[in-house]
Nucleic acid binder design. Structure first.
Lengths: 209, 209, 209, 209
DNA sequence: AATGAATGAGCATTCATTCAT
DNA sequence: CATGAATGAATGCTCATTCAT
């Protein structure tokens, strides 16, 4: 009665084991999935590959995950939970500095972002998955927007600031940092980036709005 | 005169037919490929599907393309050529307005951009393809950068403007407009966006730099 | 009436053209077929290849031959006709010398023999073809046998000579000369070979039979 | 002890199973391959056919063999190992009798020879395979040659015996026995054949060399 | 629970053959 | 007559998934 209670939550996970050893296997599979998805992409990665890389048999894979897609879902579940962006407080003495910090922390989640690279193709085929990700994106967007709104209410921003558009621009820039670093091989100068973004939002000190 | 000029760029076209009817079939296949890649993604789209959608037999597909990948290459070849961004002239009476025009024209190339959505997964697996795309991106980037440099030399921009970073930010914003429109379903207000971008670049009129 | 008279002989040749130009094309196809069969084998050679090699369109191939197999048949027809072995006259002053000459002339037909290398696989699948070849082989065998019989009747051979077996042995040796030369790269010493064969057949001069 | 010793000779076995049941399947595939290759030839036999004949799914075929060619290689590996000819000892009281025995034992390996019929076409396309077979042939040739040399040194043979040529002739005769039996349907009289061959090698008893 | 052998649907690709031009 | 574009049956091979051990 209690042992099997919430096993089949949402019919998704064939089995989420309680025991330590089994948990390890499950995690090992998740980790292998993540690595291979990021390295080779989602479609080309096979269940067999993941199992082998995790050091278990293919049958074991299907004990813990109904299929590849579900492993990915579990992976995202894990990561998205950890990934809520900090409350951006623009109303501070030094918003630039704060923003730089935010950007940098975002970059620290590069690993998770790795998965992002894998997703675009899936989003087309998998509305459920798309929903999860769009939702996560909306969270980010909402956070940024809230911060901007507060700043605007305080009269700190450009008076004609189109909040939605700016929030979106910031989000897009954030999201593309990892790709940029990968392509160019250069570290991002977060302070510089923050300065630029702030110019979108705040009029220069010397101005009267 | 120039229509067939650089057809063989990426090499390996098994056959580019001269006759009218055959040309139509080839184009029909290209178009079907584009549609299906955008709709369903690259990997999940099969050669058979493309052929059927184009109303030809599978054998015909392989008459004109060595495989799916090569059709994609041909597609990109076509599109990337058309996609050189206009020379961005920041040094004008009204840069905002000009930028808005650029942004809008870029959006008109939404169709081509459709393909962009298809590529991320490929970039991992296909270095040659990645090279083509990164090159195309660098062209854009260089154009934007050039414009910024000229503006800076004229003393029009923020004096401490980090050109590379701004150019990249603008590029990223440009690239993500189509995705945004698709997700939100809203038309982009290019004028508004141009205003924001210009604030990254130019100090407000009332300021002395 | 006369023009079409014997076109469809045996239903085999779709069309054996009377006109010079057409004859040339047909011959060109035959020749290309022969070369490619010998070079690459029968199965791997495609009709398209033969046509291209002959400098005609694939449609033309099918105008003159119903398929690849029939081209091969026509080829064999041609060659086997030319290939009747000479009457072996063992009853001569110097049978060794005569045999050496036969062997050498056989080798001159090496080109035709080239086709032999192509056939073994076909013989399994194509009883009709096998029949043609076995027949041709039987001709050779019969000729050799006849010669031996005459020699035996004259009391020239070993008295206990098992004619069939010797004839077969000689035939086998003959048939394998081209393969041997190809593998070893060495020219065959026909005189030496003839000597050996003669020892199978004739007792040494000093013996009384 | 030695059963599995040199399994990996030709490399590339995707998987040689350890378990009994699986071994049976693998053997079943090998056997089916052999039968079908001999019956229908190599090229026309498909992997699917072999699998079906062996009573397994096509996927199982590819579990044990990378492709048709590799199955053939495994087959040859097995057979060629068993096929080293006995040391031919010509220096005996009764070489004829000994030779007859050799010939007969060779014929007992008819099964292996079955595969020989399959090979000619392959030899053209597959140099690696050709190498294996030519090597095996050279072994035979060398054995025969050695025997002849010893006999010659003892002064038993014709003094002018061209060893290479005779050895080759004997080899060719040996190799063609199976084909002959198949075509004619008659059993070979090994004693008679041995007599003939011996006449190639040894002068008649009554002669002084 | 874990294993990995077995399955077979499904995709990529080739090629003999037809037929409209 | 010649052409070569078009066809689609047939083959090779992969991989997600099941299930007996």
């Amino acid at each position: 009665m209690s042992e099997h209670e919430d096993r089949q939550l949402a019919g998704a996970f064939p089995y989420v084991p309680q025991q330590k050893r089994a948990q390890q296997k499950r995690n090992s599979l998740l980790e292998s999935g993540r690595e291979l998805f990021i390295k080779n992409g989602y479609e080309p990665t096979t269940a067999k590959e993941i199992a082998t890389h995790a050091g278990v048999a293919i049958g074991t894979f299907y004990r813990y995950f109904s299929d590849k897609r579900q492993l990915l879902l579990a992976l995202l579940q894990n990561q998205l939970d950890k990934m809520l962006p900090p409350e951006p407080k623009w109303i501070m003495a030094n918003p630039e500095q704060f923003l730089a910090a935010i950007l940098e922390s975002h970059f620290k989640q590069l690993e998770q972002i790795g998965l992002y690279q894998v997703l675009p193709e899936l989003l087309i085929r998998d509305p459920e998955l798309a929903e999860i990700l769009i939702q996560s994106r909306k969270n980010w967007h909402a956070r940024i927007l809230t911060g901007l709104q507060q700043a605007k209410e305080k009269g700190l921003t450009w008076p004609d600031l189109e909040l939605e558009v700016v929030a979106w621009s910031i989000l897009v820039i954030l999201e593309n940092i990892p790709k940029k670093e990968k392509e160019s091989g250069l570290k991002t100068d977060y302070v510089e980036l923050a300065k630029i973004i702030c110019r979108m939002v705040f009029p220069p000190k010397g101005m009267t709005s």
